[in-house]
Design a protein around this nucleic acid. Structure first.
Lengths: 231, 231
DNA sequence: ATTACTTCTTGATATATATCAATTACACGG
DNA sequence: CCGTGTAATTGATATATATCAAGAAGTAAT
């Protein structure tokens, strides 16, 4: 993790968290002088589960994975973090700790801001606070949807979900680079890596996708959606 | 659902949402005159998934279940709502809709407050907003933990989790009335009702719990925790 | 109490998914 | 280009879990 300011100022940052539209020019200056920019290489840990949640993090460029280090050293990937995302701990409790880790998948530029400075915006700027509540709500809705999917779908449905997630939410394209390993795809869908392999092959053989080791192309979106909805 | 004010005033309500400590006497008066109190009989639906999220709801007495109506009419129980809980939709979006249903398990008294009135507190009272963000964060942490449990544990661990959840978070006692049917326990742990029956029997036979149709008594908490952590 | 109804329980069986073992493809430093 | 390590793949097998079918037990209304 190296340190060099590639982003000149928050005001000109194109990847800013959307809620920053609510803060004043004055506050923006405060933010800009309180941030600490960092670059992470692929694989580097950006936030470690269990460490004090004394910072919040804004993704500026690149992709990262948020994951929980669960039982028996098994990981569970919660989501992919992309530019514009805010990554924060459980709230504004003193002594609170991160409940998940974040590690860079590609090269990542990100800005750290102290939780204290961030909290100030919440307290001093009502529309900022409202926006933050919205962000929390959005996250909760997404998490809830994932939970139901995990609980109620079989493997094929869960895998289809993730393939669509990458297309719709991360790459905005039906053809994309598969940035996760088979193992990691398993950690995201709660299935064994061997099963991921077999199912991807099955999807390919039935003409739903093209899949090689490092790329996915959705050929028959309609069918993939049907599989996701329960096939 | 009948309507009668059993709670004279928010100021004297003992079951209030903890974040109300942040609001002023003046604001409390506004809250009190904006609330609408309702009583629900067991089984009655308090909030219906898909309906406009134009209200927030405070649990005053009784217990309810929050659940998602998922695939093929299969439900998934998210959590048990108890007195003091705030139940709200996805956020302050216009036209947002509830993403889950809530139905009364016991007789429930609850207060409705319009989302608009509620939002005003967020905007006008910074510490209230901060408290709300905290509540959201807490909820997210709990949901995340449940998700990992669902994803990584086998049936016995998931069932043990739920038994401990009732003891620790709902009844604060190792002996309690089982307010959910076997079917519903399955909807909470993502398992078939028959498997719930079989596992409860197994727990009983191995001396971990006493279980009859309507009651649970944890005999060997240590072992149950071990099963939950992965047994 | 008798009926009708739902929930619970049990055993037998089918299915989905994980694990194990072995091979093949791939990436990288020298 | 060659070895070396990691990830991907494949098939065989074991395990966990769901489904099906039938009966028992509890609950509520008559």
């Amino acid at each position: 993790m190296s340190e060099q300011n590639l982003i000149n100022s928050c005001e000109t940052c194109t990847a800013g968290w959307k809620n920053f539209r609510h803060i004043s020019r004055e506050e923006m200056k405060v933010l800009n002088s309180n941030r600490y920019e960092a670059t992470f290489k692929p694989g580097e840990i950006m936030i470690k589960q269990g460490s004090p949640a004394s910072v919040v993090l804004f993704m500026s460029t690149g992709l990262a994975k948020s994951y929980v280090e669960g039982l028996n050293g098994k990981n569970f990937i919660l989501r992919i973090e992309k530019p514009g995302n805010l990554i924060m701990g459980p709230g504004s409790y003193a002594n609170s700790r991160f409940t998940h880790s974040v590690s860079a998948i590609t090269t990542v530029h990100a800005c750290f801001v102290s939780s204290d400075a961030f909290r100030k915006f919440t307290v001093e700027n009502p529309s900022f606070a409202e926006g933050l509540v919205d962000t929390c709500g959005e996250a909760a809705v997404k998490m809830q949807a994932r939970m139901v999917n995990l609980a109620q779908k079989r493997m094929s449905g869960r895998l289809a979900d993730v393939l669509l997630y990458f297309a719709d939410e991360i790459f905005h394209s039906d053809e994309y680079e598969m940035i996760l390993s088979r193992q990691e795809l398993g950690e995201m869908t709660s299935m064994a890596k061997e099963c991921v392999v077999r199912l991807l092959k099955e999807f390919e053989e039935s003409g739903v996708i093209n899949s090689d080791v490092s790329g996915i192309k959705i050929l028959d979106r309609e069918r993939l959606v049907k599989i996701s909805e329960q096939g």
